[in-house]
Simulated assay, not measured.
Amino acid sequence: MEESGITKRKSSKFGKKEDLFHVLHKVPYGDTPYVKAKHAQLVDKDPETAILLFWKAINAGDKVDSALKDMAVVMKQLDRSEEAIEAIKSFRRLCSKQSQESLDNVLIDLYKKCGRTDDQIELLKRKLRLIYQGEAFNGKPTKTARSHGKKFQVSIKQESSRLLGNLGWAYMQKTNYMMAEVVYKKAQMIDPDANKACNLGLCLIKQARYEDAKSILEDVLQGKLPVSHDIKSRKRAEELLKELKPKMAQPEFVDILGLDDDFLKGLDQLLDAWGPNRSRRLPIFEEITPFRDQLAC
């Protein structure tokens, strides 16, 4: 009886050690292809083997949602982003409806990594359209997100502002600063923060609208915006203002011709996505003035 008790205690200690191993390395239990892939990724630090095992998991139908997303992330780390994009496009049909949103987020990062700005813009606008139609977050007002191993709640309001911020940055990469300005202003109306304010200030500088840019950047330094205490944003605002000083002596010139056909086409697409069926809009979109009103200001 006593030996049995010792054996039981030993197995209990072993179980605790095993539990601790899985917690520390964030590796799931089991011996399936997906578990082996995560072990190769997180414990062995062998990304090539991890990718092969993720493929095996997908083909075996083993946690396909997670396997496809995790494989794409590992591919991105190995500068195989184009391959990751094709994998998601080819196999996302095997994934659940609940996983499509997170796969879109991975795709956006992959498009950014590859410099596929047009694809990035189209996907961001599609995600914003889903919010407008009330179909994002599976119809719920919030969703659970994870960052650095910690879970937190994200609201539709926060997600809308985040997507608009990403869209504004994408337009900046195309040097379409007028469209970027419009989008950043929308984002600030929904959920203002200092980082997007700095980007908006940069858009205005690029359009030689120096007084407007100065006003926005000074708001960041004076703590008039949420997250204005963020050291990086404050430092960036200081750098932009320093860059702005020698330009202030120059006359301001707004290039109205910047509203070219491509800009108007993109603008109309957003209006088409958000304009009809106003009754279906989420309240957050009802609070925002139309794009054209803002451009007229």
Rank of each mutant, 00 (worst) to 15 (best):
L200D: 00
Y111Q: 11
P192A: 00
S147D: 09
C198L: 00
D119T: 12
K196L: 08
T144D: 14
C114N: 09
S160F: 12
L128M: 10
I131E: 07
T142W: 05
C198Q: 00
G139M: 10
V182H: 04
L123C: 04
K127V: 04
G134T: 13
D191W: 02
G139D: 09
N195R: 07
K206A: 10
K127H: 05
S161R: 06
D119E: 15
C95V: 06
I121P: 11
K150C: 04
R162V: 09
H148Q: 06
K174M: 10
L124V: 14
I108T: 14
D104C: 08
N166V: 03
S99I: 12
K112M: 07
G201F: 01
Y184G: 02
Y177C: 02
S160P: 04
F137K: 08
K196W: 03
T142I: 07
K186E: 14
E122A: 15
R93K: 12
S147Y: 09
L128K: 06
W169T: 12
K140W: 06
F152D: 00
M172R: 12
I108D: 07
L200M: 01
A197S: 01
H148D: 08
L94M: 13
C95Q: 10
S160N: 09
A194Y: 00
E135N: 14
Y132R: 15
E122M: 15
G168N: 04
T117G: 07
K113P: 03
R126S: 11
A136G: 02
A194W: 00
G134M: 14
Q158C: 03
G115A: 14
A170D: 02
I131D: 03
